[in-house]
Simulated scan of single mutants.
Amino acid sequence: MTTTVFVYGTLMPGERNAHIAARGGPFTAQPATLRAHRLHHLHPEAYPALTPGHPDDLVRGYALTYTPDAWSAALPFLDELEGIHDSPPLYTRETVTLELEGGAALPAWVYLYARPERLSAAGAQHVPGGDWRVVEGRMHGGA
């Protein structure tokens, strides 16, 4: 059972929703990279959207690895924040393979943005370099 989730936005350590990741219990956070995915910033929402991308695309974030009990406790909080049970869903949860610092591969869950029509709107921008922490105005807004 995979008990790791890749976070790339408001759930990263030090960001505005990091406290939600901690609600389930203890975890370890390791810098990680997700390849072949593209990161977008949504304005005025002020949160990121992750989509499948080109083989050369990459996204920087963290692998949060929970104990099995902590994962079971954290998952409802994460799913609620990401709106996977909304109709239509805001994000979907899927499995991917991350690259940790040093090159080790790690299977993980990730939340992919499920409303592609929003990405063509004027307030959606691609995040060059795939690191949401460099986006101006990311600390304001919704989720």
Rank of each mutant, 00 (worst) to 15 (best):
His140Trp: 06
Tyr62His: 14
Ala143Thr: 04
Gly123Gln: 12
Thr28Leu: 03
Gly103His: 05
Pro88Ala: 01
Thr92Leu: 14
Ala21Cys: 04
Leu75Asn: 05
Gly25Tyr: 00
Gly142Phe: 12
Asp56Met: 03
Gly9Arg: 00
Leu90Trp: 12
Gln125Val: 15
Tyr47Gln: 03
Arg60His: 14
Thr67Gly: 12
Tyr91Cys: 11
Ala32Thr: 01
Ala70Met: 08
Tyr62Gly: 01
Gly53Pro: 09
Gly137Ser: 10
Pro116Asn: 07
Met1Phe: 10
Leu39Gln: 01
Pro89Leu: 06
Asp57Lys: 01
Glu15Trp: 02
Phe27Leu: 12
Ala104Phe: 07
Ala29Val: 01
Ala143Trp: 13
Ser120Gly: 15
Pro128Asn: 04
Ala63Val: 13
Pro76Lys: 09
Ala32Ile: 04
Pro88Asn: 08
Ser87Val: 15
Asp56Tyr: 00
Thr92Ser: 14
Arg118Ile: 15
Glu45His: 14
Val110His: 04
Thr33Ala: 09
Asp56Cys: 01
Pro68Leu: 05
Ala73Ile: 10
Thr67Leu: 05
Gly53Glu: 11
Asp131Trp: 07
Gly129Met: 10
Glu136Gln: 14
Ile84Tyr: 05
Glu15Thr: 00
Tyr8Val: 11
Val5Lys: 09
Pro52Asn: 02
His126Val: 15
His40Asn: 06
Thr2Cys: 03
Thr67Val: 01
Glu136Lys: 14
Pro107Tyr: 08
Tyr111Asn: 13
Pro128Trp: 07
Leu39Met: 04
Thr4Asn: 04
Leu75His: 11
Asp69Glu: 15
Ala74Leu: 09
Glu101Ile: 13
Gly102Thr: 07
Ser120Phe: 12
Arg35Tyr: 14
Ala124Lys: 02
Tyr47Ile: 00
Pro88Phe: 04
Ala122Gln: 08
Gly53Phe: 09
Pro128Ala: 05
Pro55Val: 10
Arg60Cys: 09
Ala74Arg: 00
Met12Lys: 15
Arg38Cys: 11
Ala121Trp: 14
His40Arg: 01
Asp57Gly: 00
